[in-house]
Amino acid sequence: MKIKGRLTYAGSSRMYEATFECKGDRFRLLAADGTDIATGAVSDVRFAAPVGRTPRRVTLPDGALFETDQLDALDALNPADNTLHRAEAFRPRLAGFVLATMLAVWVVWRYGVGVLVAAAVWLTPPNLARILDEHTLRSMDRFVLEPTSLAPDEQAALQGDFAGLTDALTAAEGHTPMRLKFRSGAMGPNAFAMPGGTIVLTDELVRLSDDPDMIAGVMGHEIGHVTHRHSLRQIYRALGIYAVVGFLAGDTGPVLESLLLEGNLLLQLAYSREHEFEADAFAVDIVHRAGFDPHGLVRFFDHLTEMGLNDPLPSWGSSHPSHERRVEVIREQIRMIGAR
């Protein structure tokens, strides 16, 4: 079997016509004029793993490279296992690989990211989250928040209620020391929790009504976010997906890279429905344990609905469940507690 091709010597770009010939376990490399260039045992020749329909290559013991476009002829001589190359061929069974890959991607998405997040949460030193809180609050103070205008005795009363709630936490729930801060400013009636246990109430929220049970309900909800480590999970989830997408997609070209990675980060940071329900449920429970009326939270939502303050984000960003649905779930839970 004669295979026509081209020869380059080791470390030289000059190319010669050549013929590669195999007889038994011996090979011969012939120049265009028929003279011998090299002979030897086939086992001393290194066959390059075939990739696609690129020219097939063999390297001789002295580093010379023979290259041919007679792909099948050379592949037939290649003693190596070419399972990978055959698997890559564009045949109907490739559809099976596509399905398997989609399934695998789904599994990674559904479970892999969760495992990564759990591991990262477990590895996070508690004071790191606290430092994070301080930085975030400082920059929010600079740009969006203003100092509170609540009277000191008003603040003290709320701090008292807050302490009542945190005292009711079990040791497992109180893994992160929590602090209550007051601010006012552009955000309107609002409350939020940060991963390190900092909870912020706005003056506008406190002034919605002088119903301590209602404010306790809101505080309980935020304590729930901290106890369930929601914000930390969300940050890690976003980063985890960022890493997984980056790793799976590899080099995707100029536009897609930013789109996939940064767009995804944004989507993941949007609030999650499950987290809100979880925090609501926790609020009802902790408020009840601390001796407040769990209906306060229901009154809070009714209040918001009355004021026409429903979910302000349209369509895709709307991951906050509707007030009616939340109230329904909370009422059901209160009924269960009452029955206990």
């Binding site: 309107g188 303050l309 979910d311 302000p312």
Partner: peptide
């Protein structure tokens, strides 16, 4: 002030 923004726990429109 921001008027639109009033979600509980949200800061959504911000």
């Amino acid at each position: 002030s921001f008027r639109v923004n009033r979600g509980f726990d949200g800061m959504e429109s911000f």
